[in-house]
Simulated scan of single mutants.
Amino acid sequence: MTLVAFGTYDSAKHPRIGIVVDGLRERGADVRELNRPLGFSTAERVRMLQQPWRLPALGWRLLARWTALARDARALRRDEGEPDAVLVGYLGHFDVLLARRLFRRSAIVLDHLVFAGDTAEDRGAAGVRVRLLRALDRRAIASADIVLVDTEEHEAMLPEGARGVHVPVGARAEWFAARRPEPADDRPLSLVFFGLFTPLQGAVVIAEAIAAARAAGADFTATIVGTGQDHAAARAIAGDVEGVRWVDWVAPDALPALVAAHDVCLGIFGESGKALRVVPNKVYEGSAAGCAIVTSDTPPQRAALGDAAVLTPPGDAAALADAIADLSRDRSRVAELRAAASAASQRYRAAEIVAPLAARLRDLA
């Protein structure tokens, strides 16, 4: 089977599409990439969708990328014929419309990791803008023959008639390669969090928990990586806490090693509807890197990790502070959790997570 990964995605910033491509290749698929990255971050794209006056910048850049993609597609069809399937990468709400037009005889697969309306609502949008973005979601989904979603909860959000396939986010090979031997237990517990500081991530909850755990005498260090919507609020709470290091940015190729150098990777702790429906990339990546995982107790995260993680109630800073304090005192428990998370992560290697998609594509052949 020949497949084309198509669109304006950026797999360095958003690794999901890279994981799917890796997995399909490992399963023997011939995957070509027609990729012209748009160059906007997720936060910038969402901001544009929330603030219509910013859309011309998106429109002009999108037009330039689409012109190049159309040229690439014509060359591909001329030299190699029509592919069996076209995989439209993450944040492909507009790209899928172009793919449908360019590859009329191919199966179109949309990686719908993000529902635009749901994401905008999680970040504070409301009213007409959210309704328009939900309409965009419906249009994008209707343009695809197969729609990839990352959790069963997201699959339940698909419109009636959509052909959804549940493909967890997983982790790329470099995260598994970053694992380090179990460190000596004669040093403070080390925590790491990395993200975009969106509401679903619960960065303020993390900051409150870190401050409370330190005030209660817990012995630990923490590395907090990233910036975003809730960064200022989180730093106002825990910016001066002893042993906490704030890092605005880490290059994607350096992030696995940085995370693997810590004992515990913190997941998400928000309370929004979206926060209750996702398993964040950091949970898969942190477990692949050999960290113990502490994250919120939500149905998809419990299904993904179960007893291989410490799960605390969403939005509950006190419970998270208690979990941090308990682990700082019980290093044998940390070692158990690291081993359990590492074992669980084997289910989320690239070739494993794409098995349902590979089966669906075989059915179409």
Rank of each mutant, 00 (worst) to 15 (best):
V4C: 05
H14M: 10
I19P: 00
V31F: 12
N35R: 12
N35W: 04
R36G: 01
F40E: 05
R45F: 10
Q50T: 13
P56Y: 13
A64Y: 00
W66I: 00
A68S: 12
R77D: 04
D79Q: 14
E82A: 13
G89T: 01
Y90H: 15
L91H: 01
R100K: 15
V109L: 10
V109N: 05
L110W: 07
D122V: 05
G124P: 03
V130H: 06
R134I: 04
L136A: 14
R138G: 14
A142C: 03
S143C: 15
D150C: 13
H154R: 10
H154G: 01
A156W: 03
E160W: 08
W175P: 02
F176L: 09
R179Q: 13
P183C: 02
R187F: 12
L191Q: 10
T198I: 01
A209S: 11
R214H: 15
Q229Y: 07
H231D: 08
G239A: 10
D240S: 10
D240V: 02
V241F: 09
R245W: 08
A251P: 00
P256W: 05
Y284P: 09
E285C: 03
S296F: 10
D297W: 08
Q301D: 06
L305W: 15
A308M: 08
D316K: 03
S328D: 09
A344F: 08
S345P: 00
R349D: 07
I353M: 00
I353Q: 08
A355M: 09
L361S: 04
